[in-house]
């Protein structure tokens, strides 16, 4: 019933989606995937170019990637590689380099650490902490 919706966006390479296992094992994995789909739609890269980059990253990983394809460990290794490939595509397109992305990630971590539970984590909080 949802097949037409599924076909409207590219399949996830190498991951089975026609079984009862979750496709994503953590929100960041879903988000990394969705970001890639959006950037492709926005014309930042072609899907074949993406696939080539992703394959390059995957090549450097152990072939079993944490074992069973349905396991959380596999999903983590798979989407870590996915994220790495996405970062490289973004650098290649001249949108942001690895150093800048690293800075922004560190800022988010600072913001989270400084935020009591139950309070929304604000990116600005991390920026404030950078220059106390």
């Amino acid at each position: 019933m949802s097949d037409t919706r599924k076909n409207s966006v590219p399949p996830i390479q190498g991951l089975p989606i026609d079984n009862d296992e979750p496709v994503f094992h953590a929100p960041w994995q879903a988000k990394a995937f969705a970001l890639t789909v959006k950037l492709h739609e926005a014309g930042l890269f072609t899907w074949p170019a993406w696939a080539e980059m992703f394959s390059d990253v995957l090549k450097d990983l152990p072939s079993d990637m944490g074992g069973d394809i349905r396991s959380s460990a596999y999903a983590e290794a798979y989407f870590s590689a996915w994220t790495e490939a996405l970062e490289r595509m973004i650098a290649q397109a001249g949108v942001a380099d690895a150093a800048h992305l690293g800075d922004v990630a560190a800022t988010w971590k600072r913001a989270a650490e400084a935020t009591p539970h139950g309070t929304p984590i604000l990116y600005e909080r991390g920026l404030e902490l950078k220059n106390p």
Binding site: P27, T83, V104, T115, H117
Partner: peptide
Amino acid sequence: GHDNHLDDMTARVMALETVL
């Protein structure tokens, strides 16, 4: 000790989302 500790991958993907 921190409820709000972000793991590395979550922070990396949040960074991508922020920048993009």
